[in-house]
């Protein structure tokens, strides 16, 4: 069993490392494979084919291939978003992380980690988002009715 403290430390380290390469990214689906390419194009609201969109709390837009929805880490991210913000019908999905952290997570997802690493990562995501909560106020979507 992995120590929670150690995991928290890991998560922080990832965030710091990712911060070194802070940049705006979007992912575009390649036509032949489901691998992704990182581009530095400026954020736009153009609708990318075969993609879904999430925003981070610092309002950075990410477009991912639909195949990412089958990834268990990504599924967990969406669940965390639901717990934090509820299921909002009126706008795009927001994840309760900043873009730096999400970029770092994506790198892990792309590397196709083994089961244990994935478990450790999932646990550390849950701990890491606690430190993100104060930022939640930044996401500026209007109020909606939903779900229940």
């Amino acid at each position: 069993m992995i120590n929670t403290k150690k995991l928290l430390k890991m998560a922080k380290k990832w965030q710091q490392r990712a911060a070194l390469k802070r940049k705006r990214i979007s992912f575009q689906r390649s036509t032949t494979t489901t691998t992704t390419t990182t581009t530095t194009t400026s954020s736009s609201t153009a609708v990318e084919k075969g993609c879904f969109v999430v925003y981070t709390v610092d309002k950075i837009r990410f477009a991912f291939p639909l195949s990412y929805l089958n990834n268990s880490v990504f599924e967990e991210l969406l669940k965390i978003s639901e717990e934090e913000f509820g299921l909002r019908a009126g706008g795009p999905i927001t994840l309760p992380f900043d873009s730096v952290f999400l970029e770092y997570l994506i790198k892990f997802i792309e590397r196709r980690m083994d089961g244990d690493t994935e478990k450790a990562l999932l646990m550390s995501i849950s701990s890491a988002r606690c430190s993100m909560q104060p930022q939640e106020q930044q996401s500026g979507y209007t109020q909606q009715l939903l779900v229940f």
């Binding site: 609708v47 084919k49 009126g90 795009p92």
Partner: peptide
């Protein structure tokens, strides 16, 4: 719903 999520209906 697709429009609000910034994606295509077909997707």
């Amino acid at each position: 719903a697709a429009k609000k999520r910034e994606m295509r209906y077909s997707d």
